[in-house]
């Protein structure tokens, strides 16, 4: 008789188990997923500098960026709008982590080529990664015709190698909250040839070919489609006494707004840099906020999807 009671109890326990909430059963028997942070920044640029974002696979980004003249040139120059420098580029995602781009700037008629690779992606859940890390490398080629005077606006080159400069960055960013992201971007820049703005400067101290800089960038979302962005690049002093940073060049500071509408991202900003590639706005930025060299500018980004394979899928 005792055995029967034990069996009864066993049976009861089985029945009780059968009445478990299926949601609990589901939670216990499925693997937790890893969630990757999306849209740390709205665009592949914070303002001038690169952000950790890359283009998705088979997506093309057509960018047109303008920087107008200085605000303090007054009403006669329509507060700078009469003059414009621009950069146009095509940037394409080869994979979801690797993108390439080609661009041309009016400043010194410069062509630039770059690649960007997402090394680490910020994630939470099963696999936790606190930051996103993206590697960036670019080559810029000045195509301005050579001039024996050797000034910044019309330099002289002995050969085509001298026209090249290189930039590498390690972009480290974290989407701290849903609306707030921060990025730090250690930068190494090498120019094959450096120029003096004042050729009359008799001092023998040379400007370094290598420049190390640290970029700081952030974005704060005002609402779902608008954010405020800010960016600053600090050039580290030269390590070698023979060289010193050219005092005519200034660190770059930019403040702006990102507005997103469907496939477009509009980035409107104020900046003291006219150049839109690293060599120009980090190493050769001639104006500063303190002397009134503030420029109004915009980046316009339009994304096209060429993902034909997925389009064929039947939903």
């Amino acid at each position: 008789m005792k055995n029967i009671y034990i069996l009864f109890l066993l049976l009861l326990s089985v029945t009780v188990k059968a009445q478990d909430d299926p949601m609990d059963v589901l939670e216990k028997n499925t693997k937790p997923t890893t969630t990757f942070a999306t849209a740390t920044f709205k665009s592949t640029r914070v303002i001038n500098g690169q952000s950790v974002e890359t283009m998705a696979k088979r997506h093309l980004d057509f960018r047109i960026a303008h920087r107008f003249g200085a605000l303090n040139t007054g009403a006669y120059n329509y507060f700078g709008l009469d003059q414009a420098t621009m950069r146009m580029s095509f940037e394409y995602g080869l994979t979801n982590d690797l993108m390439v781009g080609i661009g041309r700037s009016t400043t010194q008629k410069t062509f630039d080529y770059f690649g960007k690779y997402k090394l680490l992606k910020q994630s939470s859940g099963a696999h936790i990664m606190p930051v996103s890390v993206t590697l960036f490398a670019s080559i810029a080629a000045v195509s301005l015709s050579t001039n024996p005077e050797n000034s910044f606006s019309s330099p002289s080159f002995a050969n085509n190698i001298e026209r090249l400069s290189y930039c590498t960055q390690i972009l480290i960013a974290r989407k701290i909250t849903d609306g707030f992201s921060l990025q730090i971007s250690p930068t190494y820049l090498h120019r094959n040839k450096v120029f003096r703005i004042n050729s009359s400067d008799a001092s023998e101290v040379l400007e370094p070919n290598d420049i190390f800089a640290i970029g700081f960038g952030g974005r704060y979302k005002l609402n779902k489609r608008t954010s405020i962005n800010a960016e600053y690049f600090y050039r580290l002093p030269s390590f070698n006494d023979q060289y010193t940073l050219n005092s005519n060049y200034h660190n770059s500071l930019s403040v702006g707004v990102d507005i997103e509408t469907g496939g477009h991202v509009f980035q409107l900003h104020f900046t003291n840099s006219l150049g839109m590639i690293e060599k120009q706005f980090i190493a050769e930025n001639t104006e500063s906020w303190t002397n009134g060299g503030i420029h109004w500018g915009f980046n316009l980004s339009r994304t096209f999807s060429f993902d034909k394979k997925k389009k064929k899928d039947n939903w």
Binding site: A18, Q19, D20, D21, P22, M23, V25, L26, E27, N29, T30, T33, T35, F36, T38, A39, A56, K57, H59, G262, G263, T303, S305, D307, K310, K311, D313
Partner: peptide, 29 residues
């Protein structure tokens, strides 16, 4: 993920929203 209990007829379904895949990455974002 889904669990179906055939004795009680109860059903539970749970999905991760970020697992929805779109043909256009911007739409997904």
């Amino acid at each position: 993920n889904s669990v179906l209990n055939i004795t009680t007829n109860e059903i539970a379904v749970k999905m991760v929203m970020t697992e929805f895949k779109f043909k256009n990455h911007l739409m997904e974002e």
